[in-house]
Structures are given as structure tokens and as C-alpha cells.
Design a protein around this nucleic acid. Structure first.
Length: 814
RNA sequence: GCCGGGGUGGCGAAAUGGGUAAACGCGACGGACUUAAAAUCCGUUGUCCCGAAAGGGAUUUGUGGGUUCGAUCCCCACCCCCGGCACCA
């Protein structure tokens, strides 16, 4: 009676041994380095199926690369600052620090139970002073380089989180990314990082192997558009400003301008509005300000707006243009002003229709005979009604007008971006303090580097008030100015937690190094990251910020190279059995613990990889897990209950070896593509094949041993514990995880016999076993000789014979 | 509306330089073991039709067309699901 497979025992035993041996501690040696990174988890409390789905396949891929002879660095850490800690603290009366570090203890244990090869010696926790100290250091460097600045600006305010949000943290429906409350606007003094300085460089994703989808999302987010800033004349008594600038990408339509639109918040609005229009304008501005983003961004809605009573002058045509305000003009984009060309812009067209503003065609549609347009004409055409530019194709006209405007000094070619600078101030407690001291004499003074870190005080009252909780902490706030020694106050805002995830993977290399953010030697050896895996939900936040941050770190000489993550793979999202996102409130969360306790981590890991392609994710049903459990038990029995060895038929030996080598070939290809589902299917087939041979009679000892050994080696990355146990029990030397990935032999993998398919008019009529190297003549002969085929060719003429080597013969009959 | 990804058995899914559709599993059904159940093992299993059976035939990859000797794969039109973007001048 063989001992049964007891996963709990096996897993506990090997996890302890691996740890005691430091089996997964990365060493500096002369193997080629490979930095494999999985996104670090937020310290939310428990490791759930989503974490397993991110970590287990990543671990498998990392282990595979290690077996391929690479020196793999596979670190882990915790994204530990952030609002949930604070909210939980307020709700439960626990300090955010305690909540966070208790969670980390629990999560560490749970992550270990997965059986990953994480190198825990490099663990990094973003709320540790030894980590956030360098956030502060980077902030000071950004400041020195003019890449950090403070400005009074309208900011996205979440009334529930009681803090401002970055644009990226506001969802398309105008709600907060965290709590889905409608975001409002507030004017506040805020710290910004100048990500726009790097917009063009960030737009270039050509040097990295990323999913096209993510690259496209980043490009759309940055939203570069080339155009011209054009000046319109302004001559209003009592208004100093004598020009109004607009940004346009359609300078070729400049002669078609029949109105001007300013954003309601535009600073000129109160100055230029004529007394008779003032009441109406004020009412409109007021209403626009009160609107939520959701209402304002609705494209379905009819255009609204009001006339200010003022006019500006189109310098090219000399015409006076009425100035309106409308909420479809956005203050932050371009210059906050739009030139209205209803004939050639659909939005302007709708606006003009709404308010009976004339439509002036300046690009003639083909066969146009002067009749009014039914909608804006956007396609190319010949310019008309455009004075000296008449008759030019509009693409040439574009250049000509841009040249003319520049030569007259009425404007210049320019580039506009959708992306705005990154707002990093947060009015909350649990984050990195911004290292600034406000002095009444000297202004905003950076904290000297040697005084870092500015420690987050433990004993703050952290109830949200709309102001940072640090503001009421007297000991924290009151300090002296580093410049003049006078009394001064500390900045009380903390940093957006996306600052933390910007560079954690750099810190992993030397988490306790205290002379710089990273030990230069370690950075030189290990960076950049060779393979990054994580969810696609970070496409325009973390993944864009981190690229920006890296480029600045490069310019600071901290790292080398232009990109932090050479290859990116996005795993899919695992959802509840109901197809909805897993959440406690929906009650559709599948807790791994129950299944891990019953079947073990190996089974659970394998099951997650087996349910489908890793990049697809999808609803998670647990039903099939028994199949994996049975399979691992079959493998167990296979290794422990050996067949009777002896003289096996040559054909059987050949078959077994062929299966082994075909499986290695398939498994290797699947590992390279992260196709774990088909990889596991192949390993199951090898298992079933071995069992078939065992039950069929005497088995060749060498062929058997080769098959079992290969199976265990290929099993090692997917099911690290049971493979180690079986490797040991079959008398092989510790550890299976330091072995080389098996190699296949093409000759052994080759089929000598094929199933020749015979079709008549494309329909399958017979299958004939034939040698793999059969030639056309012989194949055709066999096909025509088939009794079954003859039934379908009888009385008909064979008009054509198609032969596909190694596959089929198709007889075309009439 | 625009840009991606997808739609294949009862279920999760395989297979696309056009060539045996449904590998590998789950579930279901039948059987073995058992006093019994669980566990395990063996067999069957896309659908429909003919047949007592052996077997045979038709049909099937969201829908409708097209190209081809042959289409899950290529082309056109449409429907549905998921993700992203959406008044960006």
C-alpha cells in the first residue's frame, strides 16, 4: 500500500526547507540576469483569488526561466500607504499603522502558502520611513530640476474621500476611482509634477515589448495634437488684453470662423461681457460651475451657451466675430477658447444650428453647388471663400496659412496635449509627507536632504476634515525655516500613493541601502525589469507614472536606460462566478483558503492556470478543481508505483519516448507564451500516456525513467511542492528547482506514421494509416483504392486531386 | 459614436502561414470495487436521423453572404458580450 498524497504535509515540509536553505535568495553570479516583476499588492487585508491569479502564474514563469539557466530576481513587497488604511482606522478605531502592518503579517503568511520563489530578503514596504524617505528625496530632486511646482488650480475634489484626486483617478463618468462619489471642482494650492515635459518621450513606446492595447491607451491618454495657436484681435474699451488666442488643428478653416467660444471659467469672460448680457452670462457660468462632470461631459445633450455681447477680429479675413461662452469649451485644453467653424466641425455645427449662427463653407465638398450643409464637412477638399488661399487643396492650405500666420506674427505652430501635469498633493494622513517648509519670509523652502525623512507622526488625529490631518498636529507643523531660522510651518499634505509605486522595483534591489535610493552597483547589474506582469487596470496610471518617474531618475543618474519595463504581460481579471467583479458587498468572493486546505496550494495554483489563457481571466468557477486534484494524485501514483521493467516491444519504447519528447517541445513553447492551460493539458497527456504504458505490460526502464523525470521537471514550475516531494522520493538529488529544464530531440519527437485523411469534394470520407514520409503518388493510390471512398466516386469522374503532404488527399469529382 | 479583445459541446476550453472541429479537463450517464456511501478506476458522451446491433448518413464554430477543391481561420455586412476612449478645438 503506497502512502497517499497529503498536500498539507508535503507543502509545509518543503516551504520550511526551502526557506531554511535560502533556496530562492538571489545571488550575484555570472549567469545572465533576469528581473521578473509582478505588481506589488496593496495591503488590503487578505490574499484572495485575484492575488493568486496574479502571483501563481508569474511564479511559474519565473521558475521556468530559472530552470532555463537564468539568474532570476523575483521580489515582492507591499504598497502600504493609502486611503483604505485610514478609512478602516476611522471605522474601527485602529491606527492605520497597526491596521497596515497587521495586514502585512497576514498577507506574508498567505503569500508564502502559495509556494512562490519570492526573494523575501528584498521585501519593501512603502510606508516604512526607509522607503518613503527616498520619495521625499526624489521630490526634492524634482523641485531642483523644476519638475515639481506649486500652483493654485481647480482640482478634482472627492467629497467622500475628502481629498483631491489626480485626473487619472477620476473615472470617465466623473466619479472617484476609489469610492464612486461624484467628483466636484475646488480651487486649491497644490503640488504638481511636470509630466507634460516628458509627454513626447512617453509617447514613444517603440523600444519596449508591451501589449498594443496598453500602448494605445497611453498614447490616447497623452493625446498629442499638432496645430497652430492663432491670435484674434480684441479691442474692448477698458480691457487691457488686446488679443485672444485659440488653438486649432484646422487652421485651413480660419476663413470659416463665424463665432468664438470661451470656456465659461475663462478669466476674460467677466471682463468682456457687455452690461446688457451680464445677467445671462453670470447665470450660465454659475450653472456650468455647479454641474457635475457627468452632466457636463455628456455628448448626448444639446449644445448650450450664451453670447457675451463682445466681438473679436479675425485678422486674416478682417471680419468681426461674436464671442460666446459654452461649456463644450474646456478651460484646461489648448487656450480655453475655440474658434467656431460650423461648416467643418460637427460640434460647432450643432452649436451654430442651435443659435442660428451663419455657416460659412470654406472647404468645398466634391460636387458642391453652394447649397447649405446638413452636417459639418470634415473630409478633404478645395478651399473656397478663403481670399488668397482659394483653389488650394486644404492640406496645402493648412501649411500655407500656418506659414502666413507665423510670418505676420499672428501666431505660431504648436503642440497641444490632453495630458496635464500630475497633481500629487493629498489632504490625507496615511502617506508620504511632502518635505516642504512654509516660511512667512522665505516662502516654500525645501527640507534639507540631511533632515530626511520627514517622519509621519504616529499620534495624529486622522479624521477627515477636508484639510490634511497633519495640519492640526502642532508638534509636526511648527518648525523653523531652514533658510532664515524663523518660525515656519510644515507642508501638511501628503503624496499620492502612486508616488510609492513609481519606483518600488528599483528599491527592491537594495531595500536597506541608506546612501541613495538604490545601490548603484545593484542597479547597474539588475535594471531594467525584463518582464513585468500585472493587471491592465494600471494602463494609464501606474504604468505611465512609473515610465515618467524612471526617465527623471535616469536624468538624475540614478538608473540607466530609457524604459523601466522591457516586456509587459497583462493577466486577465478573475471575476466572481456571476461574472461580476469580486467584492465583499456582492458576496461573490471565492476565498482560496478553503480549497487550499482541502487540495493544497499546488492543486489550486494549477487549477488557476488551467481554466483558460492567463490574459483572459473571466468568471471563476471552482467546479473543475477536482480534475487537477485527480491528476496530481495520478502523478503521485505513477512515480511511487513503478511498472514492471523488462523487455518492451521496440514500438512501445519508441512511442513512449516520442510522447515524452513531444511533450517537452510543446511545454517549452507554451511556457514562452504564458500559455499555462495548454501546457498543463500536455502534462496530463504525458501522465496518461505513462500510465497506459505501465498497465500494458513490461516497460523499458530507461524510457520510463526519461518520461517520469521529464514530467517532474516540467511539473516543478507549476506545482513546486509535489514535484519536489516526488523528485526526492524517487531518489533524485535535491532540489528539483535547481535542475535544468528538459530538452527535446526532434528525431525522437517525430511521428513515423500519420493518419492520411481522404476527402471527396472536401468532405471527409476515410482515414488511412500511412507512413509519415508517404509521397503523392502512393497517397493518391491509397485514396483511390479505399472502399469507402469508392462509394462516393462511383459513376463520377475524378476531375482533380489535391494532395497536402502529411495531411490529406482531396478528390474533386463531377 | 470610435478603438481594441471576444462569441466553438451541458460547462471551462483546444485547434487559425485555410486541410481530421471539439485536445485536456469538469459535469452527466453506464459499469467495477464497497454491506452502503465517499474516494478511486474503466467505458460512453456535439446535435439529429436510419438500424435490434455491428454500423451508416446528415449536420455543427453568433447571423447572412462571398472567395476556395476545402473556411473556426481570409473578405463583406450585421447582431451580441467584455475592456478602453469619448464635446481634446
Amino acid at each position: 500500500m503506497t502512502e497517499r498524497y497529503n498536500p498539507a504535509e508535503v507543502e509545509k515540509k518543503w516551504q520550511a526547507k526551502w526557506e531554511a536553505d535560502g533556496l530562492y535568495q538571489t545571488t550575484d553570479d555570472d549567469r545572465h540576469k533576469f528581473y521578473f516583476l509582478t505588481m506589488l499588492p496593496y495591503t488590503s487585508g487578505d490574499i484572495h483569488v485575484g492575488h493568486w491569479y496574479a502571483m501563481a502564474p508569474a511564479d511559474t514563469a519565473a521558475r521556468y526561466r530559472r530552470m532555463r539557466g537564468l539568474n532570476v530576481f523575483f521580489p515582492i513587497g507591499f504598497d502600504a500607504f493609502g486611503l483604505p488604511a485610514e478609512n478602516a482606522a476611522i471605522r474601527q478605531g485602529i491606527h492605520p499603522h497597526k491596521w497596515t502592518y497587521d495586514n502585512i503579517d497576514r498577507m506574508r503568511r498567505q503569500i508564502r502558502s502559495i509556494g512562490t520563489m519570492f526573494d523575501w530578503t528584498s521585501e519593501t514596504i512603502s510606508s516604512d520611513p526607509e522607503y518613503y524617505r527616498w520619495n521625499q528625496w526624489f521630490f526634492l530632486k524634482f523641485l531642483e530640476k523644476g519638475l515639481a511646482y506649486r500652483a493654485l488650480a481647480p482640482a478634482n475634489w472627492c467629497p467622500s474621500c475628502q481629498t483631491v484626486l489626480a485626473n487619472e483617478q477620476v473615472l470617465p463618468d466623473g466619479t472617484c476611482e476609489r469610492c464612486h462619489t461624484s467628483v466636484t471642482q475646488r480651487d486649491l494650492e497644490q503640488w504638481f509634477l511636470r509630466i507634460t515635459n516628458y509627454a513626447d518621450e512617453l509617447l514613444d513606446l517603440s523600444g519596449i515589448d508591451w501589449p498594443e492595447r496598453i500602448a494605445t491607451m497611453q498614447r490616447n491618454w497623452i493625446g498629442r495634437s499638432e496645430g497652430v495657436e492663432i491670435t484674434f484681435g480684441l479691442d474692448i474699451p477698458g480691457v487691457d488684453q488686446k488679443e485672444l488666442r485659440v488653438f486649432t488643428t484646422r487652421e485651413d478653416t480660419i476663413f470659416g470662423v463665424t463665432f468664438m467660444v470661451l470656456a465659461p471659467e475663462h478669466p476674460l469672460v467677466p471682463l468682456i461681457t457687455t452690461p446688457d448680457r451680464r445677467a445671462e452670462v453670470d447665470a450660465y457660468v454659475d450653472q456650468a460651475r455647479r454641474q457635475t462632470e457627468i452632466e457636463r461631459l455628456s455628448t448626448e445633450r444639446q449644445k448650450t451657451g450664451v453670447f457675451t455681447g463682445a466681438y473679436c477680429k479675425n485678422l486674416l479675413s478682417g471680419r468681426d466675430v461674436p464671442i460666446w461662452i459654452a461649456d463644450y469649451a474646456l478651460l484646461w485644453y489648448g487656450t480655453g477658447a475655440v474658434m467656431g467653424v460650423p461648416a467643418h466641425d460637427q460640434r460647432d455645427f450643432e452649436f451654430a444650428q442651435q443659435f442660428q449662427i451663419p455657416v460659412r463653407v470654406v472647404i468645398a465638398p466634391p460636387d458642391w453647388d453652394g447649397e447649405p450643409l446638413e452636417q459639418a464637412y470634415l473630409d478633404p477638399g478645395v478651399m473656397v471663400n478663403s481670399d488668397r488661399f482659394d483653389g488650394l487643396p486644404n492640406d496645402e492650405g493648412k501649411e500655407a496659412i500656418a506659414d502666413y500666420v507665423e510670418s505676420e506674427g499672428w501666431g505660431k505652430r504648436t503642440v497641444s496635449y490632453r495630458i496635464r501635469d500630475w497633481l500629487i498633493s493629498r489632504q490625507r494622513y496615511w502617506g508620504t509627507p511632502i518635505p516642504i517648509i512654509h516660511c512667512p519670509e522665505c516662502g516654500a523652502v525645501p527640507v534639507p536632504e540631511d533632515q530626511l525623512p520627514v517622519l509621519l507622526p504616529e499620534d495624529a488625529e486622522f479624521k477627515p476634515t477636508g484639510e490634511s490631518p497633519l495640519a492640526t498636529h502642532e508638534r509636526f507643523v511648527n518648525t523653523t525655516c531652514p533658510r532664515c531660522d524663523g518660525p515656519a510651518r510644515r507642508e501638511t499634505d501628503t503624496m499620492d500613493t502612486f508616488m510609492d509605486s513609481n519606483w518600488y522595483f528599483i528599491r527592491y534591489l537594495s531595500p536597506h541601502y541608506d546612501a541613495a535610493p538604490v545601490d548603484p552597483e545593484r542597479a547597474e547589474k539588475w535594471l531594467p525589469v525584463d518582464q513585468y506582469t500585472g493587471g491592465a487596470e494600471h494602463a494609464v496610471m501606474h504604468l505611465l507614472y512609473a515610465r515618467f518617474f524612471w526617465k527623471v531618475a535616469r536624468d538624475l543618474g540614478v538608473v540607466r536606460g530609457d524604459e523601466p519595463f522591457l516586456r509587459l504581460f497583462n493577466q486577465g481579471q478573475i471575476m466572481g462566478p456571476d461574472g461580476q467583479r469580486m467584492s465583499k458587498s456582492r458576496g461573490n468572493v471565492v476565498a482560496p483558503d478553503e480549497y487550499v486546505a482541502r487540495y493544497g496550494a499546488d492543486t489550486f495554483r494549477c487549477y488557476l492556470m488551467f481554466i483558460g489563457p492567463w490574459d483572459e481571466g473571466g468568471p471563476f468557477g471552482i467546479e473543475g478543481i477536482a480534475g487537477i486534484w485527480r491528476w496530481l494524485n495520478r502523478v503521485w501514483g505513477l512515480v511511487l508505483n513503478q511498472p514492471s521493467f523488462g523487455q518492451a516491444p521496440a514500438e512501445a519504447v519508441r512511442d513512449l519516448r516520442r510522447l515524452t519528447h513531444q511533450t517537452i517541445r510543446k511545454a517549452t513553447a507554451d511556457m514562452e507564451r504564458f500559455r499555462f492551460n495548454t501546457l498543463l493539458a500536455a502534462l496530463m497527456e504525458l501522465t496518461n500516456g505513462l500510465l497506459r504504458h505501465r498497465d500494458a505490460g513490461p516497460v523499458d526502464r530507461d524510457a520510463w525513467s526519461e518520461g517520469v523525470q521529464s514530467l517532474l521537471l516540467m511539473l516543478a514550475p507549476v506545482a513546486p511542492h509535489v514535484s519536489e516531494e516526488l523528485w526526492a522520493r524517487s531518489g533524485r538529488p535535491y532540489s528539483v528547482h535547481t535542475q535544468a529544464w528538459p530538452a527535446w530531440d526532434d528525431d525522437l519527437a517525430r511521428e513515423d506514421e500519420i493518419t492520411l485523411v481522404v476527402q471527396v469534394n472536401g468532405k471527409l470520407r476515410d482515414r488511412i494509416q500511412a507512413p509519415a514520409d508517404i509521397d503523392e503518388e502512393r497517397a493518391t493510390e491509397l485514396a483511390l483504392a479505399s472502399e469507402r471512398v469508392r462509394q462516393f466516386t462511383k459513376g463520377k469522374q475524378v476531375a482533380k486531386i489535391i494532395y497536402v503532404p502529411g495531411k490529406l488527399v482531396n478528390l474533386v469529382v463531377k
